[in-house]
Every structure is written in structure tokens, then in C-alpha cells.
């Protein structure tokens, strides 16, 4: 049993937004623990609540329309109860974030060097000019930008998408944070560049032992880099598992559908892909009981439980996996093995 160092503990996180159309329940009762040096993946489709979960961890949600409950603990401090000042101390130094679109994540009006420097100076107010400059060059070298001295004076638009994402990563890691939240960090990038960026994140992780929370819709990316996985659907965690278990014996009908719907490179025989019928529900008006039941092929097997009762996470198959489904364990494992092959 390896020693575990929890660096982030999230308990019963719920987030809802007030909108003109009503209250959107974006995240419901999400709990997880992030360990030092490990990567936790959150996978889900649009509207699953994965991105809102990510931004709640740094309290980046609109404070006027969002209501957040639950606790988020970093180094023994509850972020949900932290003052604005305490929060600022933590942001960027203990938790940092990488966004989806490197084209829009950098301030177009300042040089990239100035933006990296700014991120360092906020948390090192007494650093000298030369020290800051060295740090900037050092970070740019670390994330693999050629000619860092010269390029630090360039503006974001003078870089390619991949290079910009490297700069965003440099900004995120300049203060050596314990936790890196990466929200779809490679979705906007080409596949060869995606591979470069994922490699970069993993090698930096190996170097400084940070924990990564990786948000993505791409099961391929999850399979490549995550160690543990949360599958989210309609704001809830429906399955929590070791990455290998998830692909070998998935234990939730939604995961089964997701795995079946992915077309793969080995897929030589043409034919119908498996689909999940229908579309994800509106978060304004969630189905009663299990939110997945209207699209679930197996909901008829449970005497109406699925329509009335929200299932809670329970171990159904492999030791470290749990799923929120009313199906019997034996049945879950049987179907899971078929899907996982």
C-alpha cells in the first residue's frame, strides 16, 4: 500500500446558478480526494458539471448568481470559508489552473514575459527585477519554448496554439503549486500538439510532484494520463474508479454507453456505433430519481426505483470502484465485463 498524501479534499460540493429561466443545478453532491503526485480525471459531456466543479475549487464562479455549498480543503484550510485575502494567497500559489482555449486565456495586451512575471510577483512581492526575469526565462525553458529571452518580449498572438498553452502552463506552475487544475487543456489543440502538451504536463508532474485534476470529455486522454477517474453525468458523479478498472469493468450504464460510442483507430469493421439514445437532460429540469434513467436501457429492471430514488455511490464491481446505479452488483459486473472486454 503506497502512502497517500491528500492535498485536496472535496466534500459534498454543490453549485447552482440563478438564471432568468430558473435555477440550474450544475453540480450536485460531489466528493473526491486528490493525492500528491497523482492525476485524477473527471470525464463527462457538456453540461455534466465537470468544468463548474473545476472552477468552484478556486471559487472562480460568478459570486452573484452562483450558490455553492460543501467544503474544499487545501492544506487544512477550507476554501469555501476563506476570506478574499486568504483566497488570493491560495490562488496561483497552491492551486493553479490551465484553461481550455489557449487563444483566449492570455491577456492580449501584455507580453507573455510580463504575464508570467506578474503571476510570480503577486506571490513574491519582494522579489528583485532580475530574480523575476530569471524565473520567467527558467519557466519558459521548462515548458519548452525556444529562445525564451527573446520570446518573452512577444505578445500572445505571436505564438501558435500549442506554444500559448505552454505559456499558460508556465504561468500556472511559476509558483510551484501543489495542485494543478487542467480544464480541457488539449481540446482546442491539434492531435500532435495535444500529445506534446500531455507529455509536458506529466513530465513536470514527475519533477515537482504536483497533483493534477484533469477535466476532459475525451476518454482517450483519460486512458493516457489519469490514475483515478470520476465519470460525471448531469452534475453528479455516477462512477468513480481506477482508470484500468473503468475501462476493464465499467460499472455504470452511462459509462457503458460512453465507451461504446467512442470510435477507435482499431475499428476496422464499419458498422453501427453504439449510441446513447436521446440527449443529456436540461439542468433546469432534471429527471426525478436517477438523472440518467430516461436514456438508460436497464432502468426497467428495477421496479421503478430508477424513476424515484437518486442512487448513491456504492461498490458494485472492482475493489476501488463505485457507481451510482440501482442495478444488482452481479448484473453490473456481468454487463461491465462485456462492455470492457
Amino acid at each position: 500500500m503506497e502512502a497517500s498524501h491528500p492535498v485536496l479534499i472535496v466534500e459534498n460540493l454543490s453549485v447552482s446558478f440563478e438564471t432568468p429561466d430558473g435555477i440550474v443545478h450544475a453540480v450536485n453532491d460531489v466528493s473526491f480526494v486528490l493525492h500528491r503526485g497523482k492525476t485524477l480525471g473527471i470525464v463527462g459531456e457538456s453540461g455534466s458539471g465537470k468544468s463548474v466543479t473545476a472552477s468552484s475549487l478556486m471559487r472562480l464562479n460568478n459570486s452573484v448568481t452562483a450558490t455553492t455549498s460543501g467544503s474544499v480543503q487545501v492544506s487544512g484550510k477550507d476554501l469555501m470559508a476563506a476570506s478574499d485575502d486568504e483566497l488570493r494567497q491560495i490562488r496561483g500559489s497552491e492551486i493553479a489552473m490551465v484553461f481550455q482555449d489557449p487563444m483566449s486565456a492570455l491577456n492580449p495586451y501584455y507580453t507573455v514575459g510580463a504575464q508570467i512575471a506578474e503571476a510570480y510577483e503577486v506571490h513574491h512581492p519582494n522579489a528583485s527585477k532580475s530574480e523575476v526575469q530569471m524565473k520567467v526565462i527558467d519557466m519558459m525553458t521548462k515548458v519548452g519554448i525556444p529562445n525564451p529571452e527573446q520570446r518573452s518580449k512577444d505578445y500572445p498572438h505571436q505564438f501558435s496554439g500549442g506554444m500559448r498553452q505552454r505559456i499558460v502552463i508556465a504561468i500556472a506552475l511559476v509558483n510551484d503549486p501543489k495542485i494543478l487544475i487542467a480544464d480541457e487543456p488539449t481540446t482546442a489543440l491539434d492531435v500532435t500538439v495535444q500529445a506534446q502538451i500531455l507529455d509536458l504536463m506529466l513530465s513536470l508532474q514527475a519533477e515537482n510532484g504536483m497533483a493534477i485534476l484533469l477535466i476532459t470529455h475525451d476518454l482517450g486522454v483519460i486512458a493516457e494520463v489519469a490514475r483515478d477517474v470520476l465519470v460525471m453525468y448531469a452534475g453528479r458523479v455516477v462512477e468513480k474508479a481506477d482508470v484500468e478498472d473503468l475501462f476493464e469493468i465499467p460499472t455504470h450504464p452511462y459509462s457503458w454507453g460512453l465507451l461504446g460510442a467512442v470510435s477507435s483507430l482499431d475499428d476496422s469493421h464499419r458498422g453501427q456505433l453504439k449510441t446513447i439514445e436521446g440527449a443529456p437532460p436540461s439542468l433546469l429540469n432534471l429527471p426525478t430519481g436517477c438523472a440518467f434513467h430516461p436514456r438508460c436501457t436497464y432502468s426497467s429492471e428495477n421496479n421503478g426505483q430508477c424513476e424515484t430514488l437518486v442512487p448513491s455511490l456504492m461498490q458494485k464491481g472492482p475493489e476501488h470502484s463505485s457507481s451510482a446505479c440501482h442495478l444488482q452488483s452481479a448484473r453490473v459486473v456481468q454487463i461491465g465485463r462485456e462492455v470492457g472486454k
Binding site: 493516457e224 494520463v225 484500468e244 475501462f247
Partner: peptide, 12 residues
């Protein structure tokens, strides 16, 4: 082709 992430953690 080799850059495409494979949805199979065993091939990682």
C-alpha cells in the same frame, strides 16, 4: 496516428 490517445489504459 501515434499521437491519437488510445482509449485503453493498458496501452499507455
Amino acid at each position: 496516428l501515434s499521437a491519437v490517445p488510445v482509449a485503453n489504459p493498458k496501452k499507455r
